[in-house]
Write a protein that binds this DNA or RNA. Structure first.
Ligand SMILES: NC(=O)c1ccc[n+]([C@@H]2O[C@H](COP(=O)([O-])OP(=O)(O)OC[C@H]3O[C@@H](n4cnc5c(N)ncnc54)[C@H](O)[C@@H]3O)[C@@H](O)[C@H]2O)c1
Ligand SMILES: NC(=O)c1ccc[n+]([C@@H]2O[C@H](COP(=O)([O-])OP(=O)(O)OC[C@H]3O[C@@H](n4cnc5c(N)ncnc54)[C@H](O)[C@@H]3O)[C@@H](O)[C@H]2O)c1
Lengths: 247, 247
DNA sequence: CGTTGTTTGTGAACGAATGCACAAAGTGCT
DNA sequence: AGCACTTTGTGCATTCGTTCACAAACAACG
């Protein structure tokens, strides 16, 4: 079934001491900018696979992913040499290789802290499960929310944070509490052994070395959009960048 | 009251033809990486202001924002020369200047398309209003949701999209629909004149030149976290990066 | 007014990321 | 087999971003 078995299994993980003028072999052997794009490629590959494609060229895949094809090829070359010249990439095999590179061949347990508007939306969302992320629990400090079923789990009290993490081998914590309590929650997650944190609260979290924090800040995204929108307007009309057009 | 009035109003917006080895004067005169950090600085400044600080040094502000102080100073230098050597920056004045640079001195009307889990969480969120973003409407195609009050507005049918945009001068659209309908929604937003889009649907949107799309993809964030987590585990134990520790 | 101490703003070196352009490596047809 | 054609993988130039380190600018104080 898996045509992957028929692909030459040259497990040539790039391991040469040094390339030359390359980004100096970032941790894990893959540049950070590439890592950030791999999930996009993966999604494009799944879409192509559903559409029945067996192979795909770098041009096609790049178009699906919204990037330059040279960039795509260079990104994939960091995982190994999995393409066939003159043909392209085997979709199924590339899905496997990208998944493996990202660490998606194993299941990851996730705990969500904060069962407010956002936490509930996250827990209700089915899209995480599909890619190897399993929600182990959702916690809140509000007693009136405890016991309430949300998606695949029911809300538990935040005092159970440490026990939930250790008994479920949780590696990823999601913070969806107000900013005021986010640092405390973060500290507890870290103390309990969580080393990967996704933060929705609008503040800069302090964590020790070895802990990886990514933030999702919708307010910041809107402000960046506003900047460019302002720039476009200033360009189009006079360049009076101030005190004009108060809505 | 505003000590800003007592600050020398040297409106020296950097306008020299070319710096030298500098990032070649990105559109708007401010490098993209800097724009992405300005909102973080702004938030740190508000926090400091609430704490009663009148002035702040680049070291302090950088610490609050979680960045290098040299980077902070270079970022701020793109807005103008608003610091006082030997003292630091006037907090209130810097808030004003950063806000102005970001285009936050005017109000921005936002429309949310999709009143599902995520759209409702967004509309309920008060944090947008506080920084000059006003939710004009939330739209959905599901008739059973129309009329339902969410936060400051009530759900309206998506057929009203065009009229809502034109009558409210909406410049920013938020897409919170399933991936299957996101491109269609996007096309309609663009056709109606929206040039800034915040996309939550997991797909790459196609837009014409002149339209600015930013995406928020939680699934991608988790996958990036998984990559680094895997790397840490592989480092700690043997470097068998495959078929190990199935949860 | 000069001296001391502090902090900004920036030149310059370094490092990371992008995109071009092409040789190398493959397919498929005759 | 030989040839034409396609597509990968990558060397290289360029652009963009970060960080160091320091001169210039300002305050404070005697
Ligand atoms: N909702 C949005 O669209 C949105 C947008 C941008 C940012 N955010 C941020 O995301 C976070 C959550 O937003 P929200 O709208 O869900 O807020 P919310 O107020 O609806 O929910 C917060 C929840 O966290 C719980 N909580 C408080 N302290 C806790 C603690 N110590 N331990 C466990 N739970 C605790 C509260 O009981 C509450 O249920 C906030 O920081 C907010 O600023 C939300
Ligand atoms: N909820 C999350 O935590 C989460 C996380 C990551 C990504 N996302 C993405 O965000 C999007 C929304 O997620 P959700 O959980 O709110 O989904 P949802 O299914 O709860 O809500 C989607 C809403 O969009 C409406 N809709 C469908 N087609 C429409 C159209 N053409 N015009 C207007 N409205 C339309 C539906 O009626 C529904 O109310 C999805 O693309 C999802 O993949 C959500």
């Amino acid at each position: 079934m898996t045509s992957a078995a028929e692909i030459p299994d040259t497990e040539t993980v790039p391991e040469e001491p040094s390339g030359g003028g390359e980004p100096a072999r970032v941790a894990g052997g893959i540049p950070e900018a590439t890592v950030a794009r791999l999930p996009v490629y993966l999604r494009a590959l799944y879409t192509l696979a559903e559409r029945g494609a067996n192979t795909v060229s770098s041009d096609e895949l790049a178009a699906c992913a919204g990037v330059n094809s040279a960039k795509l090829r260079k990104d994939l070359s960091h995982l190994g040499s999995y393409g066939i010249r003159g043909v392209g990439y085997d979709v199924e095999y590339l899905v496997y290789q990208v998944s493996r590179a990202l660490g998606l061949t194993q299941n990851w347990s996730v705990v969500i802290v904060g069962a407010g508007n956002l936490g509930r939306a996250l827990a209700n969302y089915g899209g995480f499960l599909t890619r190897g992320f399993q929600i182990s629990a959702i916690l809140d400090s509000d007693p009136s929310l405890v016991g309430r079923p949300i998606g695949p789990v029911t809300v538990r009290h935040v005092t159970e944070l440490e026990s939930v993490i250790t008994s479920n081998s949780v590696a990823i914590g999601v913070i969806a509490t107000p900013a005021g309590t986010a640092q405390v929650v973060c500290d507890r997650l870290v103390a309990a052994g969580v080393t990967s944190i996704l933060n929705f609260a609008p503040l800069v979290l302090n964590v020790p070395d070895g802990v990886d924090v990514r933030k999702v800040d919708l307010s910041i995204e809107l402000q960046i959009l506003a900047f460019h929108a302002q720039r476009r307007f200033a360009e189009r009309f006079g360049q009076e960048s101030d005190s004009a057009a108060e809505a």
